[in-house]
């Protein structure tokens, strides 16, 4: 099981957090931790997501990136 840390920036739109969590579960990643906040000035949310899986992290990054409200997904490789 590999551990990964994702830094996601997203427009603060309806259910964006639910969408990220749904995709993460469906694509085979377990969530170890999460921290989310919104900059009310810019309406941009940042989500720090700690996940673990046997699957390559690129599979999850590509799928989260497809979500309409996502601006950027970065992987912090130091987490594993």
């Amino acid at each position: 099981m590999n551990n990964y840390q994702l830094m996601i920036t997203a427009d603060d739109k309806q259910v964006v957090l639910e969408r990220i969590l749904q995709v993460t579960r469906y694509r085979g990643f377990l969530i170890s931790g999460m921290n989310a906040k919104v900059n009310t000035g810019t309406n941009i949310g940042t989500i720090e997501l700690l996940v673990r899986s046997e699957r390559p992290i690129e599979l999850l990054v590509d799928q989260i990136n497809k979500l309409i409200d996502i601006k950027e997904v970065k992987v912090d490789n130091s987490a594993s």
């Binding site: 309806q14 259910v15 639910e18 969408r19 749904q22 469906y26 979500l67 309409i68």
Partner: peptide, 14 residues
């Protein structure tokens, strides 16, 4: 239905 739509649409709005 907004919640139900997450897994079966490309995108959804309420």
């Amino acid at each position: 239905i907004f919640g139900l739509s997450l897994a079966c649409t490309k995108h959804s709005f309420q």
